[in-house]
Design a binder for these strands. Structure first.
Length: 218
DNA sequence: GACCAGGCACATC
DNA sequence: GATGTGCATGGT
Protein backbone atom coordinates (compact mmCIF):
# COMPACT_ATOMS: atom_id res chain seq x y z
CA UNK A 1 0.00 0.00 0.00
CA UNK A 2 1.38 3.44 -0.83
CA UNK A 3 1.75 6.28 1.61
CA UNK A 4 -1.42 8.09 0.57
CA UNK A 5 -3.54 4.99 0.91
CA UNK A 6 -2.08 4.22 4.32
CA UNK A 7 -2.75 7.73 5.54
CA UNK A 8 -6.36 7.33 4.40
CA UNK A 9 -6.72 3.89 5.91
CA UNK A 10 -5.31 4.98 9.26
CA UNK A 11 -8.07 7.56 9.43
CA UNK A 12 -10.75 4.96 8.78
CA UNK A 13 -9.22 2.63 11.34
CA UNK A 14 -9.02 5.28 14.05
CA UNK A 15 -12.48 6.57 13.32
CA UNK A 16 -13.88 3.07 13.59
CA UNK A 17 -11.93 2.42 16.77
CA UNK A 18 -12.62 5.65 18.63
CA UNK A 19 -15.58 7.31 16.93
CA UNK A 20 -16.03 11.05 16.48
CA UNK A 21 -14.01 13.23 18.86
CA UNK A 22 -16.03 16.40 18.32
CA UNK A 23 -13.18 18.84 18.70
CA UNK A 24 -12.43 21.65 19.46
CA UNK A 25 -13.49 21.48 23.11
CA UNK A 26 -14.81 24.98 23.76
CA UNK A 27 -17.96 27.03 23.60
CA UNK A 28 -16.92 29.72 21.15
CA UNK A 29 -14.47 30.54 18.42
CA UNK A 30 -12.62 32.95 20.68
CA UNK A 31 -12.27 30.31 23.37
CA UNK A 32 -10.93 27.98 20.74
CA UNK A 33 -8.33 30.52 19.62
CA UNK A 34 -7.25 31.17 23.19
CA UNK A 35 -7.02 27.44 23.77
CA UNK A 36 -4.87 27.04 20.66
CA UNK A 37 -2.35 29.49 22.09
CA UNK A 38 -2.48 28.15 25.63
CA UNK A 39 -1.95 24.54 24.62
CA UNK A 40 1.45 25.23 23.07
CA UNK A 41 3.74 22.55 24.52
CA UNK A 42 1.29 22.12 27.38
CA UNK A 43 -1.14 19.42 28.46
CA UNK A 44 -4.80 20.16 27.85
CA UNK A 45 -5.69 19.67 31.52
CA UNK A 46 -3.56 22.70 32.39
CA UNK A 47 -5.18 24.70 29.61
CA UNK A 48 -8.61 23.88 31.03
CA UNK A 49 -7.66 25.36 34.38
CA UNK A 50 -6.52 28.57 32.71
CA UNK A 51 -9.64 28.82 30.56
CA UNK A 52 -11.90 28.21 33.50
CA UNK A 53 -10.26 31.16 35.27
CA UNK A 54 -11.14 33.34 32.29
CA UNK A 55 -14.67 31.96 32.10
CA UNK A 56 -15.28 32.50 35.78
CA UNK A 57 -14.74 36.22 35.19
CA UNK A 58 -16.67 36.19 31.90
CA UNK A 59 -13.59 37.30 30.03
CA UNK A 60 -13.95 35.17 26.90
CA UNK A 61 -14.94 38.17 24.83
CA UNK A 62 -12.89 40.45 22.60
CA UNK A 63 -14.18 43.60 24.29
CA UNK A 64 -13.58 42.29 27.79
CA UNK A 65 -10.10 41.01 27.02
CA UNK A 66 -9.21 44.36 25.47
CA UNK A 67 -9.72 45.90 28.90
CA UNK A 68 -7.50 43.43 30.76
CA UNK A 69 -3.79 44.22 31.05
CA UNK A 70 -1.18 41.76 29.90
CA UNK A 71 -0.04 41.33 33.48
CA UNK A 72 -3.56 40.61 34.74
CA UNK A 73 -4.10 38.17 31.90
CA UNK A 74 -0.84 36.41 32.72
CA UNK A 75 -1.92 35.79 36.31
CA UNK A 76 -5.24 34.32 35.16
CA UNK A 77 -3.68 31.92 32.66
CA UNK A 78 -0.87 30.90 35.00
CA UNK A 79 -1.85 27.21 35.23
CA UNK A 80 -1.18 26.76 31.52
CA UNK A 81 2.54 27.45 31.94
CA UNK A 82 4.71 29.96 30.01
CA UNK A 83 2.05 32.38 31.18
CA UNK A 84 4.00 35.61 30.61
CA UNK A 85 4.72 34.71 27.00
CA UNK A 86 1.23 33.40 26.37
CA UNK A 87 -0.38 36.56 27.75
CA UNK A 88 1.66 38.58 25.27
CA UNK A 89 0.62 36.20 22.49
CA UNK A 90 -3.09 36.52 23.26
CA UNK A 91 -2.77 40.29 23.43
CA UNK A 92 -0.87 40.22 20.14
CA UNK A 93 -3.68 38.29 18.50
CA UNK A 94 -6.27 40.73 19.87
CA UNK A 95 -4.30 43.67 18.53
CA UNK A 96 -4.18 41.98 15.12
CA UNK A 97 -7.94 41.43 15.27
CA UNK A 98 -8.71 44.94 16.47
CA UNK A 99 -6.55 46.73 13.95
CA UNK A 100 -7.10 44.51 10.95
CA UNK A 101 -10.74 43.52 11.37
CA UNK A 102 -12.33 45.95 13.82
CA UNK A 103 -12.27 43.25 16.47
CA UNK A 104 -14.54 41.02 14.40
CA UNK A 105 -13.79 37.31 14.03
CA UNK A 106 -16.43 37.16 11.28
CA UNK A 107 -14.48 39.71 9.25
CA UNK A 108 -11.19 38.00 10.00
CA UNK A 109 -12.39 34.60 8.85
CA UNK A 110 -13.87 36.21 5.76
CA UNK A 111 -10.31 36.68 4.57
CA UNK A 112 -8.99 34.32 1.92
CA UNK A 113 -7.45 31.24 3.57
CA UNK A 114 -3.82 31.33 2.48
CA UNK A 115 -3.63 35.10 2.95
CA UNK A 116 -5.10 34.87 6.45
CA UNK A 117 -2.68 32.07 7.29
CA UNK A 118 0.26 34.23 6.23
CA UNK A 119 -1.04 37.10 8.32
CA UNK A 120 -1.57 34.93 11.40
CA UNK A 121 1.98 33.63 11.09
CA UNK A 122 3.27 37.16 11.34
CA UNK A 123 1.83 37.56 14.83
CA UNK A 124 4.63 36.93 17.30
CA UNK A 125 3.96 33.66 19.08
CA UNK A 126 1.65 32.24 16.42
CA UNK A 127 3.53 29.51 14.57
CA UNK A 128 2.23 27.08 11.92
CA UNK A 129 0.45 24.70 14.29
CA UNK A 130 -1.32 27.44 16.23
CA UNK A 131 -2.28 29.24 13.03
CA UNK A 132 -3.68 26.05 11.53
CA UNK A 133 -5.60 25.19 14.72
CA UNK A 134 -7.18 28.62 14.60
CA UNK A 135 -8.05 28.24 10.92
CA UNK A 136 -9.42 24.70 11.14
CA UNK A 137 -11.05 24.60 14.55
CA UNK A 138 -12.18 28.19 15.01
CA UNK A 139 -12.64 29.11 11.36
CA UNK A 140 -13.74 25.82 9.79
CA UNK A 141 -11.17 26.26 7.06
CA UNK A 142 -9.82 23.26 5.12
CA UNK A 143 -6.30 23.06 6.53
CA UNK A 144 -4.72 20.05 8.25
CA UNK A 145 -3.05 20.62 11.61
CA UNK A 146 0.31 18.95 12.11
CA UNK A 147 1.39 18.53 15.71
CA UNK A 148 3.95 16.52 17.66
CA UNK A 149 1.67 13.45 17.76
CA UNK A 150 0.90 13.64 14.06
CA UNK A 151 4.59 13.76 13.26
CA UNK A 152 5.50 11.02 15.74
CA UNK A 153 2.80 8.66 14.54
CA UNK A 154 3.47 9.23 10.86
CA UNK A 155 7.23 8.90 11.28
CA UNK A 156 7.02 5.80 13.47
CA UNK A 157 4.97 4.22 10.70
CA UNK A 158 7.49 5.26 8.09
CA UNK A 159 5.00 7.53 6.35
CA UNK A 160 7.13 10.65 6.49
CA UNK A 161 10.92 10.74 6.32
CA UNK A 162 12.82 11.90 9.40
CA UNK A 163 13.60 15.59 9.33
CA UNK A 164 10.52 16.55 7.37
CA UNK A 165 9.41 20.10 8.14
CA UNK A 166 5.92 21.26 9.04
CA UNK A 167 4.85 22.39 5.59
CA UNK A 168 6.17 19.24 3.94
CA UNK A 169 4.27 16.95 6.33
CA UNK A 170 1.15 19.03 5.85
CA UNK A 171 1.53 18.69 2.09
CA UNK A 172 1.97 14.91 2.30
CA UNK A 173 -1.12 14.52 4.48
CA UNK A 174 -3.34 16.91 2.57
CA UNK A 175 -2.32 15.43 -0.77
CA UNK A 176 -3.39 12.04 0.57
CA UNK A 177 -6.87 13.11 1.61
CA UNK A 178 -9.86 14.70 -0.02
CA UNK A 179 -10.45 18.28 1.04
CA UNK A 180 -12.94 17.99 3.88
CA UNK A 181 -13.03 20.25 6.92
CA UNK A 182 -14.97 17.80 9.08
CA UNK A 183 -12.55 14.98 8.31
CA UNK A 184 -9.45 17.13 8.86
CA UNK A 185 -10.93 18.11 12.19
CA UNK A 186 -11.67 14.53 13.23
CA UNK A 187 -8.46 13.03 11.92
CA UNK A 188 -6.22 15.40 13.82
CA UNK A 189 -8.25 14.93 17.00
CA UNK A 190 -8.03 11.16 16.56
CA UNK A 191 -4.26 11.32 16.09
CA UNK A 192 -3.95 13.25 19.35
CA UNK A 193 -6.23 10.75 21.09
CA UNK A 194 -4.31 7.68 19.97
CA UNK A 195 -1.05 9.57 20.46
CA UNK A 196 -1.82 10.34 24.09
CA UNK A 197 -2.72 6.74 24.75
CA UNK A 198 -0.04 4.89 22.82
CA UNK A 199 2.45 7.13 21.08
CA UNK A 200 4.06 9.16 23.82
CA UNK A 201 7.75 9.88 23.89
CA UNK A 202 8.38 7.45 26.70
CA UNK A 203 6.59 4.68 24.82
CA UNK A 204 8.67 4.34 21.64
CA UNK A 205 7.17 0.96 20.80
CA UNK A 206 3.64 2.36 21.03
CA UNK A 207 2.43 -0.57 23.12
CA UNK A 208 -1.24 -1.35 22.61
CA UNK A 209 -1.59 0.94 19.62
CA UNK A 210 -4.55 -0.05 17.42
CA UNK A 211 -2.29 0.62 14.45
CA UNK A 212 0.19 -1.97 15.55
CA UNK A 213 -0.81 -4.35 12.78
CA UNK A 214 0.67 -1.68 10.57
CA UNK A 215 4.28 -2.35 11.54
CA UNK A 216 6.19 0.36 13.31
CA UNK A 217 9.61 1.26 12.03
CA UNK A 218 10.99 1.98 15.48
C1' DG B 1 13.13 14.36 41.42
C1' DA B 2 13.04 13.50 36.45
C1' DC B 3 10.41 13.64 32.51
C1' DC B 4 6.69 15.03 29.64
C1' DA B 5 2.92 17.91 27.56
C1' DG B 6 -1.99 19.34 21.39
C1' DG B 7 5.21 25.27 20.31
C1' DC B 8 7.61 29.23 19.29
C1' DA B 9 11.27 32.74 18.96
C1' DC B 10 15.80 33.80 19.16
C1' DA B 11 20.95 33.10 19.64
C1' DT B 12 24.82 30.84 18.08
C1' DC B 13 27.75 28.09 15.34
C1' DG C 1 20.57 25.61 7.72
C1' DA C 2 20.94 22.87 11.77
C1' DT C 3 21.19 22.85 16.70
C1' DG C 4 20.53 24.67 21.43
C1' DT C 5 18.00 27.33 24.87
C1' DG C 6 14.40 29.92 27.54
C1' DC C 7 9.82 29.96 28.62
C1' DA C 8 6.70 27.39 33.43
C1' DT C 9 2.83 24.84 35.30
C1' DG C 10 0.94 20.40 36.77
C1' DG C 11 0.54 15.24 36.21
C1' DT C 12 2.94 10.62 36.29
Amino acid sequence: MNTSNRIESIYRLLHKQYGPQEWWPGDSRLECIIGAILTQNTSWSNVEKAISNLKRLNLISVNKLNLVTTKELAILIRPSGYYNQKAVKIKGFLEFLNHGYEGSLVKMFDEELSLLREKLLQIRGIGPETADCILLYAGNKPIFVIDAYTYRILSRHGLVPEQTNYNEIQEIVMDSLKQDVEMYNEYHALLVKVGKEHCRKENPLCAGCPLESDPHTV
